[in-house]
Amino acid sequence: MPDRQLYYEDVEVGQAIPTLVTSVDPVQMFFFSAATYNGHRIHYDRAWATEVEGYPDIVVQGPLQAALLARAVTEWIGGAGRLVRFAVQNRASCFPGEELHFGGTVTGKREADGAALVDLEIRGAKADGQLLMPGTAVVALPRRGDG
């Protein structure tokens, strides 16, 4: 895998991180529920999700939305970057087959306790712009010339 490391010096406030565009299907949802030991019916029992809980379809797991958003961040920061803090709110549900966008924007840079930190506003949204998961993250990046 090519490894293009991001450095603290390369980042500017206002810069967008690359958007991860994806969609989730019931197979991925099944594997994620298995990997997280999640038996909640709204994620696999369509009759329960629609007839009992009133959703239009089975519901993509909130932790899967969060994991995809974290993936967008950790793919951007590279192997020498580190996710320090990750905070999100579940604002809306999404469903299999919908196009989803996970990305963010740099809101600040600071050096604290010897670490070079970057503050991010992050978001998961549907293709039409409906906000699914707003949040913030802090990542630590290497500096050019470190180690």
Binding site: M1, Q28, F32, A35, L64, L68, G79
Partner: peptide, 19 residues
Amino acid sequence: RWAASVRDRNPLYFDPEYA
């Protein structure tokens, strides 16, 4: 398995040499 279910193939999770 968790990472694979997120389609997150970050080598930090899979490749000891890279990590």
